[in-house]
Design a protein around this nucleic acid. Structure first.
Length: 913
DNA sequence: ACTTCCCGCCAGCAA
DNA sequence: TTGCTGGCGGGAAGT
């Protein structure tokens, strides 16, 4: 009774939270979705379990701040701070069942988006400051969003897994790893399953397929959608302002369309995994709903679907009573689906303004043309490069260009044979012989804006000489830059360590997908063929996995091995979930050995790092593409990159990169030998990370592996992303000992995905010897540099001179030498680009130029040392070794320290986000 | 006030 | 029965 009285009293005063609870609550709030070992948990009172929004609790009473969980008895003295909590407490007191239920909740606590720091703080004392801290660190609703969670989920698996490997997803494991309830994982998995990215293998087990079959799936959905006459329905509803009762599907139902549809859904693709009665379940509505939702986009000419229309169509089809409640529920589900699709970079949020006002809608930004046959989706086999090399000894430049978006096919990779054939027999083939003796290959579609420019290049003009203009804001005014529900706080988190290994083949290709609007960037890749040193450069068809804000990607290829069996061609847009505008597609083929490595890599856990929101005007920021010639073999054992974020006003500090960068820049303007341009759209992430990598020479069997590490810039760095490729020649001789390698590494500065519509280009190794002197670069580097258009963020791509080591820790400790080499004198270039890039845009206003300082090691780097380290760490993700759960638990602030990012000194993080 | 969508209850099902 | 699944909708965060 006493309790009741107290409770009632409190109910009146709910808005005055008590500190003690606040603290504990904060903890509870944090734990609500995280699994915690019960044995280690102190039974808590129901009240404690109640997740309360502390954000509203501005007042705390210091006197009540239990550092440790208080026993139930003790708690009763405390007044509930919210009506709900109060009520729960009361109920709980009366009901053991409820209490038990509450207890269960304690098994979970929100891990998502939570940093170790946060966790630690919770465990520490709880003072006023602690409370404040808590307030600050408490995950916001956004941070717990399904979209973000989905991105984390996706980050765990390769977009284009090797066919030889079967990745099994344990829902429990994932849930624990991600710190959420399994229920949340179901939502994600169901949507992914609808697109056949995963398939149910057994109870609690799903098989990961990746995006390989996505084009096929979409094509089928498109077909089904057409059969269902969805376009017609949408048009009708849109015109009629959607009166649920107005539009009936009776006729279609009679025709059997609807009945047959569901059966077709989810069945048009065979799963690699034996489906265990997955389809027998009756409740697949989310999956079916997801497919139907996608179908609406695919059949829509505008590619924009408003939620109300989608909900109404779905309600009709589900034969639900079209009441408001149903509608509301449907919309909720659609949001769930949309969040996942957004994470997959298939759609982005937009608003449709109508007479009635603004209506929430989503726009399809994924691939839209599936006309290309599967046959076209062929990997460029590893053999291609060798062949090309043979024929065009010297530098071969393979420029990949996406097919026109309007025609369609995205990311089509041609086999070497096909390329050969076209090059040799088709005067008008998309494979153009480059002046430099290379070939340009159409690989994907370009954004409309860039299309023309790119086309010019494809007309036989050296691409490198082309200046690519950054996308203008006018590109898609109606479509604001996709905004991901990410917070800057989150950016500071986790995914810094994420590394993806993506591909393999001697030819590395990067391709980007284009979105509907031609928002896609195209990726041009240049390949250098140095037969002697077997140092391939980037070639078309190599998958570049672009991960959204998250992180690092590694690509690596084995020159000698052919495409992995069963691996068709991957095509698809990569997830840059953050920016809906940006789609990067990657294709990858891999060899068995590579696959193995990849699998290992895959095992490592990745965390996701959210990107900050982008504004549409980000588009205006020009992309930056810096191509630096590859250093001669003797000087390029290691590649490293430093990234700087250059913002308008902030001066760049250069550390070790001056000479090279400047030289590179100059090169860009002139020679086209190696340059390459690619464009990417809006990658939201601004984070910059620095990666260093080294690669060891492979045995004769594996002459060279191309490895590219794509590093996403941490928030503080404002978007500079670095892509390093670590393809080291065997004979490559490291720079003189003790000397920082001069820029022997070709590198590219890529615009940040977020900002730059233009992706990057890469620079191939230059066959000729490069000046060893730092700062001086050969003229050979091709460059495509639209300086004016440089975006504020840039990515550096370092060519295969060295392997990329994603494991920062390794770099730091294990390979001091490597570190040293990694330091490039890029600053000049960077600084320059910085100026160029630096847009006046307000967006960047808050950003300061960030200089990344790489640790240098005075010690000379030797190929051997590099090699060693490479082996061990290349495929491991920092901080992600071992059991995911354990890793999670072990995660702590120090974790990041080991990462490359952490090692960077960022003078000023962008405060403006 | 409206839009989003987190959260978790609880029913259906399979083992 | 137990535990996996996921439909569903209350209600709070975010705009």
């Amino acid at each position: 009774m006493e309790v009741n009285c107290l409770t009632l009293k409190d109910l009146i005063n709910t808005r005055q939270p008590r500190l003690d609870f606040a603290v504990e609550d904060g903890e509870n709030a944090q734990k609500e979705n995280i699994f915690v070992d019960r044995s280690r948990m102190t039974p808590k009172t129901p009240i404690k379990n109640e997740p309360i929004d502390l954000s509203k609790q501005k007042i705390f009473t210091p006197e009540r701040n239990p550092i440790t969980p208080v026993k139930l008895v003790d708690r009763q003295q405390v007044e509930p701070w919210t009506p709900t909590a109060n009520l729960k407490m009361l109920i709980s007191a009366a009901s053991p069942d409820i209490r038990d239920r509450e207890k269960k909740k304690e098994l979970f606590r929100p891990i998502e988006n939570k940093d170790d720091v946060f966790t630690d703080s919770l465990q520490l004392d709880v003072g006023d400051s602690a409370v404040d801290e808590f307030e600050k660190q408490r995950p916001s609703r956004k941070q717990k969003s399904l979209g973000l969670l989905c991105q984390k989920f996706l980050a765990r698996y390769p977009s284009y897994p090797l066919s030889t490997e079967k990745t099994t997803i344990s829902l429990d494991e994932v849930a624990v790893s991600l710190g959420v309830e399994r229920r949340r994982i179901y939502d994600i998995v169901n949507v992914l399953e609808s697109l056949h990215l995963v398939s149910r293998v057994a109870k609690n087990q799903y098989g990961w397929h990746g995006r390989h079959s996505l084009p096929k799936t979409l094509r089928n959905l498109q077909r089904l959608g057409e059969e269902q006459k969805y376009e017609e329905q949408m048009a009708y509803l849109q015109q009629k302002e959607l009166d649920l009762m107005d539009y009936k599907f009776e006729e279609r139902k009679k025709d059997g369309y609807l009945e047959s549809q569901d059966q077709q859904l989810l069945e048009f693709s065979e799963s690699d995994y034996p489906s265990s009665s997955a389809n027998s379940r009756k409740d697949k509505s989310l999956r079916i709903m997801s497919q139907k939702f996608v179908m609406l986009f695919l059949v829509s000419k505008t590619k924009i679907v408003t939620l109300d229309v989608a909900a109404k169509i779905l309600i009709e089809e589900s034969q639900d009573t079209p009441d408001h409640s149903k509608f509301k529920t449907k919309v909720r589900r659609l949001y769930d689906i949309a969040n996942v699709l957004t994470s997959l970079a298939l759609i982005k949020k937009v608003h449709v303004t109508e007479e009635r006002g603004r209506k929430p809608a989503f726009k399809w930004i994924g691939p839209v043309d599936f006309s290309s046959s599967d046959e076209e989706l062929v990997d460029v086999s590893a053999s291609v490069l060798p062949e090309l090399k043979r024929e065009t000894y010297g530098q071969i430049q393979v420029c990949a260009k996406q097919k026109l978006a309007r025609h369609g096919s995205f990311n089509t990779v041609q086999s070497s044979e096909r390329i050969q054939r076209k090059v040799n027999s088709e005067p008008n083939s998309p494979y153009k012989e480059q002046g430099s003796g290379g070939y340009s290959l159409e690989i994907g579609s370009l954004a409309a804006v860039y299309r023309q420019k790119i086309e010019d290049s494809s007309q036989g003009k050296p691409l490198a000489n082309k200046k690519v203009m950054p996308p203008s804001s006018s590109l898609d005014p109606a479509a604001p830059f996709p905004v991901l529900p990410i917070d800057s706080d989150y950016c500071a988190n986790p995914l810094a360590n994420q590394v993806f290994s993506v591909a393999q083949t001697d030819l590395q290709a990067f391709s980007t997908h284009s979105g509907l609007n031609g928002q896609v960037g195209s990726l041009l890749t240049t390949a250098t063929s140095d037969v002697e040193n077997l140092r391939p450069a980037l070639l078309a068809s190599q998958p570049l996995v672009y991960v959204p804000s998250t992180s690092l990607f590694m690509l690596y290829g084995n020159l000698q091995e052919g495409p992995s069996p069963g691996l068709g061609s991957g095509s698809g847009s990569e997830r840059d979930s953050r920016s809906s505008e940006v789609l990067t597609a990657t294709e990858s083929s891999s060899t068995p050995s590579v696959q193995k490595r990849l699998s290992e890599e895959r095992k490592s856990q990745e965390e996701e790092e959210p990107a900050t929101k982008r504004q549409s005007r980000d588009y205006e920021e020009g992309p930056l593409s810096l191509v630096m010639p590859k250093k001669s073999s003797d000087s390029t054992d290691i590649a490293s990159a430093e990234i700087l974020e250059s913002r308008g006003s902030a001066p760049l500090e250069d550390i070790h990169m001056n000479g090279h960068l400047s030289a590179a820049k100059e090169i860009l303007g002139t020679a086209a030998t190696n340059g390459f341009i690619s464009s990417e759209w809006g990658n939201p992430s601004r984070n910059t990370e620095i990666e260093k990598s080294s690669k060891e020479n492979e045995s004769a069997k594996e002459p060279s592996l191309l490895q590219y590490l794509y590093v996403q810039s941490p928030a503080g760095l404002n978007g500079l992303n670095v892509l390093l490729s670590g393809n080291q020649l065997t004979h490559a001789v490291g720079p003189s000992s003790g000397q920082l390698p001069s820029l022997g590494v070709p590198c590219m500065v890529l615009p940040s995905p977020t900002l730059g519509p233009f992706p990057v280009l890469y620079s191939p190794a230059v066959p000729g010897p490069l000046t060893s002197a730092p700062g001086s670069l050969p003229n050979t580097g091709p460059a495509n540099f639209g300086l004016p258009s440089l975006g504020s963020t840039a990515h550096f791509l370092i060519s295969p001179a060295s392997m990329v080591n994603s494991k920062s820790s390794t770099l730091t400790s294990a390979d001091p030498q490597l570190q040293g080499q990694c330091s490039l004198n890029l600053s000049p270039v960077i600084s320059r680009s910085h100026h160029i890039i630096q847009p006046e845009s307000p967006i960047f206003g808050g950003h300061q130029a960030s200089v990344v300082k790489l640790q240098q090691s005075p010690a000379p780097v030797t190929p051997k040392s590099i090699r060693r380290s490479h082996r061990e760490t290349f495929f491991k993700t920092p901080g992600n070794l071992g059991d995911p759960v354990l890793r999670r638990r072990e995660r702590n602030p120090s974790r990041n320290t080991s990462s490359a990012q952490r090692r960077l000194e960022i003078p000023s993080s962008s405060g403006a986000d």
